[in-house]
Write a protein that binds this DNA or RNA. Structure first.
Ligand code: FES
Ligand code: FES
Lengths: 144, 144
DNA sequence: TAAAACCCTACCAAATTTGTCAAGTATTAG
DNA sequence: CTAATACTTGACAAATTTGGTAGGGTTTTA
């Protein structure tokens, strides 16, 4: 199966969707997310922890607490969420800023993977949590 | 690193590029591919075997033998190559024809991953071995 | 002060990736 | 005929990634 997204990324987006529904005032607990999206509490903790450290969400402790979006849903792109959970889009490790590649100049495919990555990134940047909430996903063919 | 392509897919495309350069008459040996693309002979054997069974290339045994493209380079898309080596584009396992998902109807993200997969597939279908050989990759932004 | 809720680190099993190895079979040049 | 060339096949294994679980914290508020 080509170009798979890990469950961490998938669950992360679904969790952010639940949190976004509480915006701007109602904290959403991990337990609620866990029940609605059918993902274990322990696994969600890891995921939300990363997103909190990236300032995409904030947490409120104690009874009545939970998670809240830091920005409005239309300002949180899917690309931003996945970027935190899975690192940057990089089809090959040659494109990974941390790794690089010595063959890059003579490589016939380098530009191809780079272009593909950029297209994916551009697409995921146009989709936000608001797109998901408003059910406008069926329109994305027009967005291109 | 998000949406990584396995080395099998990467090496496969690079091997096909070498074979395409011999089109339509000159067989290219595994050894040549191995040297030019810096991939072990044993690993290439596995990869080329798959591509041969998929009828993308044919093999000629014995001295003077090697591999030949079955179709002209402009008729072999990158999508076709990767499809054989890595299976269909499927961002999530829910989109994998062999697996499926029970939550698909109530899932807020299903359409998103589906649309992304289709965009990727469409893009990779427009790029062929001829694109690589002719060095037209810098044009792909215009291709869209 | 007890319950609610988040925080953090360590650990683990299974799957996938990324190959290697060894022993074939088929073809042809000479 | 035969030796060299070149592809064919299947088994196997190390390394990495994935997809979590476990279990103990800490903070807040009713
Ligand atoms: S092998 Fe690294 S850029 Fe192609
Ligand atoms: S969980 Fe399977 S389609 Fe979203």
């Amino acid at each position: 199966m080509m170009l798979r997204l890990s469950t961490k990324g998938q669950y992360g987006v679904r969790a952010m969707y639940e949190i976004a529904k509480g915006y701007p005032e109602t904290p959403v607990t991990i337990k609620e997310i866990s029940e609605k999206q059918e993902v274990s509490v322990a696994y969600l903790e890891q995921i939300l922890n990363k997103l909190r450290k990236a300032n995409l969400i904030k947490s409120i402790k104690g009874p009545g607490g939970g998670y809240l979006l830091n920005k409005s849903p239309d300002q949180v792109s899917i690309a931003a969420i996945l970027n935190e959970l899975e690192g940057p889009v990089a089809i090959t490790s040659c494109l990974n800023p941390e790794e690089g590649c010595v063959r890059v100049d003579s490589c016939v495919t380098h530009l191809l993977w780079k272009a593909l990555g950029e297209k994916v990134e551009a697409f995921l940047s146009t989709i936000t949590l608001k797109t998901l909430i408003s059910g406008d996903l069926y329109k994305i063919k027009e967005i291109s």
